[in-house]
Design a protein around this nucleic acid. Structure first.
Lengths: 123, 123
DNA sequence: TTGATCCTTCAATAATCGTTGAGATATTGA
DNA sequence: TCAATATCTCAACGATTATTGAAGGATCAA
């Protein structure tokens, strides 16, 4: 997956709001099982309708996905979309400058060998 | 350099606007020599005062730097700040998940060996 | 010092965004 | 079917953000 500029703008906009950034962090840590809309809203301190609004925003921006599961709607992080955003930032926005890529390479090296389940909160 | 959440929010907000994203792209490609405010504004199609507004916004967000040089004010990309943002996205926001880091590692590998001057627009 | 250039700041306006609360929709179990 | 639960949608309001044009520093050359 490769991000075009308008999608990247949407993604940056989505992450520029505290509630939404926390939602993404929460969902990344929740992993592939995801969480219900209500649980996410509660964990970030958003009202029912505010939570719904922000989750919809994040989904439109391609950063999370949803599926219905009985009464609940379960949201999960969209790892492909998040990876595409990191790649956009490094490649299209920052032209792959080594000064920018070097720290990314360090993080990637720290995390690359392990599977998702083994990750701690801070890599 | 390590980004805290409020700084990261500012940085994402700064990049969520088309004119500003273009300004950053332009300045990254311009390299350490940078460009004058007027030249940047012209290259992204912004009026004098709009250009000034957006450049100030980007500087506040830690993504670019400025210095006066005779009559002109020269802006340069803040590579440290941009690198910190990539790192925040990978580490603090995405918890270093391998699914997200793997594509970043590819870009880093592509770019790591070369010096800034040799970079092409797309790495 | 004067005039020209480059850029920023300010105030006013328009546009976008976030929150709230009320009501609508979907799903389940009795 | 009916009531309960979980979530979404909508309209209204206030807050933040972007744009514009006019006015205000800073710098330089003559």
């Amino acid at each position: 997956m490769r991000l075009e500029e308008p999608q990247a703008l949407d993604a940056f906009g989505a992450l520029s709001q505290e509630t939404r950034l926390r939602m993404v962090q929460t969902l990344v840590q929740a992993g592939p099982d995801g969480m219900s809309a209500g649980a996410i809203g509660e964990s970030v301190g958003a009202s029912s309708s505010a939570g719904s609004f922000h989750l919809a925003h994040l989904e439109r921006a391609g950063l999370i996905k949803s599926r219905r599961e009985s009464r609940s709607i379960i949201y999960t992080a969209n790892f492909e979309g998040l990876a595409a955003l990191v790649e956009f930032l490094m490649r299209d926005c920052c032209s792959g400058h080594p000064e920018i890529c070097a720290p990314a390479a360090v993080v990637a090296a720290e995390c690359g060998g392990r599977s998702g389940k083994e990750m701690t909160a801070n890599c």
